[in-house]
Amino acid sequence: MPQQVAVVTGAGAGIGRATARTLARAGCDVALIGRDRARLDDAAAELAGLHIRTVVLCADVADPDAIERAADEVEAALGPITLWVNCAGASVTGQLVALPADEIRRATEVTYLGTVYGTQTALARMRRRGYGTVVNLDALALPRPLRSIESGARAAIRAFTESLRPEILHDGDRIHVALVHLPAINTPRFSWTRNHTGKRLHPSGPVYEPEIAAEAISRAAFGRHRDVWVGLSGVAGWLAGLFAPTLRDRRLSTHAYKAQLEKNAAEADAPDSLFAPVHGAYAAHGRFDTISRKTMPPLVTTTIRTAIGAAVLLAGAGAILSALRRRGHA
């Protein structure tokens, strides 16, 4: 394997910025792609002392031609791309009936199609050499009320990633596609999401620092894990959806609905990043440092989740057989 050249979209802030730092510390040369040049330059300055090469490129991930041009510039400056991480996303929050069609379209294009275009661009180059790694994010491991558009986009990313893997396997390329399932992460996105609720947004469930998400992305890439779940909440949600979907829906309709909104009203003129970047000195962290968790939670890989699911199914089967035996003896 030659020198690792990593591309990170959404690299100016949040998970993308933390991922760029983590990959740079691992020795990768890093290309930072985003919409805000000043923030990208600031992110690149953070990497200056790590003895790696960087390149900064302004591009909108929802524009496939712009992503193609950016990838060409990356390879001209740094060499063949070996790792591509799709961190860019955009969201609009509120009840579906209140959301304008253009905002729904834009949020879906950035989050879902941005991932598709990034993956397509990376694969077009990686397949020439027969190796490489793409990491996609399921940044909303559990569906949330008021976030139906992002939930739909993330579900589409999951299905897209699952459909892509057999294609790569069929062609025999040594290209790895990983999916990282994330809980709530303390990033600036809660401050710049297009918000129709009238209340300030608040993460629900356990909240983790963006460096933890970046570490999970790094492990998924270099450990060649198919899926990585950060913490046990994603696995718990998967099991709840499998065995008790109605109960899960009821809990989401009450607890999760209120947990995402603060009591304070949202600022009427608060900027958001749906159609244009929010300018300012935003970095990886958001405004929830006081409640976010700094220690690494359990990372559940596909193998571990399969074992958990099998154990649950075996336990259920054992309980059923035991009940049948008792009925037979009665």
Rank of each mutant, 00 (worst) to 15 (best):
G16T: 09
A18S: 02
A18E: 00
T19M: 03
T19H: 04
A20T: 10
R21C: 01
T22V: 08
T22C: 10
L23H: 05
A24L: 01
A24I: 01
R25Q: 07
R25S: 11
A26F: 04
A26M: 03
G27T: 08
C28L: 02
C28E: 00
C28Y: 00
D29F: 10
D29M: 08
D29L: 13
D29P: 12
V30L: 03
V30T: 09
A31L: 05
L32C: 03
L32I: 01
I33L: 00
I33T: 02
I33G: 00
I33V: 07
R35L: 05
D36M: 05
A38Y: 08
R39E: 04
R39H: 11
R39L: 08
L40W: 14
L40Y: 15
D41W: 07
D42E: 15
D42G: 13
D42N: 11
A43S: 09
A44S: 14
A44F: 05
A44V: 03
A45L: 07
A45I: 12
A45F: 06
E46W: 07
E46Y: 07
E46F: 13
L47Y: 06
A48N: 09
A48Q: 09
A48L: 12
H51I: 07
R53A: 15
R53D: 13
T54G: 02
T54L: 06
L57M: 02
L57N: 04
C58H: 05
A59R: 09
A59H: 10
A59Y: 10
D60W: 09
D60M: 09
V61L: 03
V61F: 02
V61W: 05
A62K: 03
D63V: 04
D63C: 02
P64D: 09
P64I: 02
A66W: 15
A66V: 13
I67L: 15
I67P: 08
E68V: 07
E68I: 06
R69G: 15
R69V: 12
A70L: 13
A70M: 12
A70D: 05
